[in-house]
Design a protein around this nucleic acid. Structure first.
Lengths: 337, 337
DNA sequence: AATTAGCACTGGGAACCATGGAGTGCCAGG
DNA sequence: CCTGGCACTCCATGGTTCCCAGTGCTAATT
């Protein structure tokens, strides 16, 4: 059904269409690619490809354009990830190495990725649930308020003000702090609930109320509500593209962080690059975009995802190369931190 | 030179052009506004306005369009801030009141403002330099590292890892922590450098190195580098507008946080609404946009700015009303926190 | 002196061809 | 199974026309 040459034709169609943004015809293909056959033959192959739904014509007497299905096949079988050039690798390194804290690492990463791919880049902050508690700090704020600060081993800091505790006793706070740290320091966040379960029973009755409040806020903020922060860059690159869907829809989708988080999260291949093409992203506004994403992390522990959003008509090998490379470098930087 | 009626004509031109987005002619003006004179008279006034540079025609035989100068006059003398409706006020309140921490207050505020104005909203985090130190926390991270966390009275938390300190002695850290807090808790950040100047001399010699490191990081991160964070929302609203400059340029400008920070910072009128129109924003990409901004803060202490970016052809009274109202509410929310 | 009616004029945008050419499908011959 | 040839299709392009909103000017009116 799909012999070697038909695949070669499909590949050529994708490549040409991506680079020219115009429907590609049999003649142009015969010229620009050494397929070794005449335009007429290519035309025959094209009807076959069209019947199978890999390519389509915008109208009769126009060239062919890859469909989502065509891109899918291209990505899966016809292309390979394009490694970055030496110069690009150096650029990445120098760009990322100057960062001083987590915020800056993330900020630089997302800009870098947007620049490399000339598309919209997304970087997710290291997920809370996958990291471990480094330290918990309790700070009396005066009045009846207390600030809780949790520091994770990925350098992330989560803070929360706890109010309405009644009179606050400094030494009780100190006790609670030591107790808390003894109980959960070093634990993965997922294991925290279990670990603190019987803490309230260990404190003196008069401090029990405070302890309970603190614990409930701790659990709520760190475990249940694991709002994952993401950062975008390069939206300006969208302006250059003309979308089937309106640009507005795409921008709207990008502003809905929850949508992006879900899309990133749904990577099928757990450890490597994931590509979702066109309608594979169910979100309405992203029908005509593709998303290339990857995990990053330290060692073999995945912390979060990064990704790129662009038109379905994108340079998949190049984008995949950039995403993969950046993911690796971020992992390294985080490890060295 | 500019009698009452000419001003009325200018006002009418601005209002009509803003609502229709089409050059407005003398006939249309005579119909839609009760100016009490004939189109011919209006035409005469228009030439005068055009000579003075308040309006312009895209081409002969087209209607008139306000110039930047025209908008300026409109904003300064011909319009008044439009207060929000009861319903809108209620919406603001309910939208903002559910926020649990500073991050969420800011996030909600920016979305709210974007929604109210149907434009791009910008919210700046409470500036570090204007707030005061609530508490400093030092946390040994294991190894030779220490994490410093500074909490300000605006609920903001700034953290930093300090490395290469040599052996870390828990009790020395505790001493330093108490000493630091005694020295600077409650101080405005601007006053911190002076206050810590002679701290190193007060610690035991063997801890002096650590103290010096901590202090230098403290100063660097909080005072010298007062990177001010800002948050955007509503960029999708730009897609609806057709810009003279390309959309791409506008998006690019919006991604350059430093540019936005500068623009917000340059508000002339210190306490009230500021409007910068078109070329008044020197940034190239923002030539065809206007920025409406305001301070927010608690009491009469200004903490930071919020603003809206939209096409010069915008509903100034409405936008100004929304910005002012939101600024006030944020101030209230922050005060109650 | 200011306003208005009347009028000729202007220039852009919509509508309407006409044309050219890239691309197709198909067929018949290699 | 491939290829050259050929008739056909339809979009994009550019030119032409026409229309009309809107103008500026002048002369009449208040």
């Amino acid at each position: 059904m799909l012999d070697e040459r038909k695949l070669a034709v499909l590949r050529a169609v994708v490549e040409d269409f991506v680079s020219t943004n115009e429907p590609v015809g049999s003649k142009a293909l015969a010229d620009r690619h050494k397929l070794g056959v005449s335009p007429a033959t290519i035309r025959n192959d094209m009807v076959a490809l069209e019947e199978d739904g890999y390519i389509a014509q915008p109208h009769t007497s126009a060239g062919r354009v890859p469909t989502d299905k065509g891109y899918r096949l291209f990505v899966d079988r016809l292309s390979s990830v394009k490694p970055l050039s030496k110069a690009e690798r150096r650029a990445i390194e120098s760009f990322l190495s100057g960062a001083v804290d987590l915020d800056e690492i993330i900020a630089r990463t997302v800009r870098l990725l947007a620049q490399l791919t000339r598309q919209v880049a997304i970087v997710q902050y290291p997920s809370l649930t996958r990291s471990a508690v480094q330290h918990v700090e309790l700070v009396p704020l005066g009045g009846q308020r207390l600030m809780m600060v949790v520091i994770t081993n990925t350098g992330r800091v989560e803070q929360r003000v706890i109010d309405g505790l009644g009179e606050i006793d400094e030494s009780a706070v100190a006790d609670l702090r030591t107790m808390l740290n003894r109980a959960i320091a070093g634990l993965h966040l997922g294991d925290v609930p279990e670990a603190v379960e019987d803490l309230p029973s260990q404190v003196r009755p008069e401090e029990r109320r405070m302890a309970a409040s603190v614990l409930s806020v701790l659990l709520e903020s760190l475990v249940e509500r694991h709002e994952e922060r993401i950062v975008l860059a390069g939206t300006a690159n969208l302006a250059a593209v003309d979308f089937a869907a309106s640009l507005r829809d795409v921008l709207e989708a990008l502003e809905e962080n929850m949508v992006l988080i879900r899309l990133l999260g749904e990577a099928k291949d757990p450890s490597m690059l994931t590509v979702r093409i066109g309608a594979e992203n169910f979100h309405e506004g992203l029908r005509s975009t593709s998303i290339v994403s990857a995990d990053y992390g330290v060692g073999n522990q995945s912390l979060a995802k990064i990704g790129v959003v662009g038109p379905t008509r994108m340079d998949y090998p190049g984008t995949m190369g950039a995403v993969r490379a950046v993911a690796r470098y971020v992992g390294q930087i985080l490890a060295g931190h």
